[in-house]
Amino acid sequence: MTTKTTQTVDAAAAGTWTLGDRTVNRLGFGAMRLTGSAAFDLGSSRDREQSIRVLRRAVELGVDHIDTAAFYFSRLRSANELINRALAPYPDELTIVTKVGPGRDASGAWLSWATPGQLRGQVEENLRQLGRDHLDVVNLRLNGPGPLSDHFGALAELREAGLIRHLGLSNIGPEHLAEAQAIAPVVCVQNRYGLASRPDRSGDLLRICGEQGIAFVPFFAIAGEGREGGAAPDGAGDDDAVLAVARAHGATPAQVRLAWTLGQGGHVLAIPGTGNPDHLAENVAAGALRLTADEMALLDAAR
């Protein structure tokens, strides 16, 4: 059962946060699944017109924060180019966040993590695909432990040159955030975090980001560990606590997981992704779902 207000809830119901000088609704949209039914699967492509309709409907529902990357593509679809086709010329209030560091070749195989000198090419490819002269936010996604100063410094130079407005980080530990902040301001951190997947370092970062006024943007907040390859039926794998809270609110388990995510703090943003118009409306409606303290505690204990 979905929430009764699924078709009318606006993303603004989740409240707002700032990414630098950009104010966004805390319920956003992740573009990864626009290209296919499974992440990074070249053999699976969604219907192009449906993906375009989903993007346009997301904006109609108040979504003003879209997360994407040039390496989100299937054999026939590119997330960035779908965004360009659906939404350009872009509304002034729309914030598009992309990420650099990883890359894939035309066959879909992952390339070595970009060198600092290669990051400009990745930024320019995002600009080309999106049809923009600057990028609102660029996240540097790390590919493992080690220093990031040379890579983040290269992006800071592109920020000074006007190609990037704001900088963020992804897949990091607290030490990386401190290292990056010594080079340039960080407006957001994007790490794996959700009701079913709470790595210790991400929990530490959630707290640190809250203390410093930095947006914390979990990915796979709905899917959880091991489910990012494709959408499981809603409720599959959910424990009794999630199902009980969902029944109490007339909501779906996915909506409960999103509400729990947003309940972690006013600085926490959610970017659920889908290529399904009905699921889009349900995800946006989750921004209006308020869980009680007892319900949050019950879910916290469930793991």
Score class of each variant (00 low, 15 high):
residue 32 M to Y: 12
residue 33 R to C: 02
residue 33 R to V: 04
residue 33 R to K: 13
residue 34 L to D: 03
residue 35 T to F: 02
residue 35 T to P: 01
residue 35 T to W: 00
residue 35 T to V: 15
residue 36 G to K: 06
residue 36 G to P: 11
residue 37 S to L: 04
residue 37 S to Q: 13
residue 38 A to V: 02
residue 38 A to N: 15
residue 38 A to C: 11
residue 38 A to Q: 11
residue 39 A to H: 11
residue 39 A to N: 09
residue 40 F to E: 08
residue 40 F to L: 12
residue 40 F to A: 14
residue 40 F to P: 05
residue 40 F to W: 15
residue 41 D to V: 13
residue 42 L to T: 08
residue 42 L to A: 08
residue 42 L to G: 03
residue 42 L to R: 13
residue 43 G to K: 09
residue 43 G to F: 08
residue 44 S to H: 14
residue 44 S to V: 11
residue 45 S to P: 03
residue 45 S to W: 07
residue 45 S to H: 07
residue 46 R to M: 10
residue 46 R to A: 10
residue 46 R to F: 03
residue 47 D to S: 12
residue 47 D to H: 07
residue 47 D to N: 14
residue 47 D to W: 05
residue 47 D to T: 10
residue 48 R to I: 07
residue 48 R to P: 06
residue 49 E to W: 05
residue 49 E to F: 07
residue 49 E to G: 05
residue 49 E to M: 06
residue 50 Q to G: 10
residue 50 Q to E: 15
residue 50 Q to K: 11
residue 50 Q to D: 06
residue 51 S to Q: 04
residue 51 S to H: 05
residue 52 I to Q: 02
residue 52 I to G: 02
residue 53 R to D: 11
residue 53 R to M: 10
residue 54 V to D: 07
residue 55 L to S: 02
residue 55 L to P: 03
residue 55 L to N: 01
residue 55 L to Q: 02
residue 56 R to K: 13
residue 56 R to D: 02
residue 56 R to V: 03
residue 56 R to N: 11
residue 56 R to W: 03
residue 57 R to E: 15
residue 57 R to F: 02
residue 57 R to H: 14
residue 58 A to Q: 00
residue 58 A to K: 01
residue 59 V to E: 01
residue 59 V to A: 01
residue 59 V to S: 00
residue 60 E to C: 00
residue 60 E to H: 01
residue 61 L to M: 12
residue 61 L to W: 00
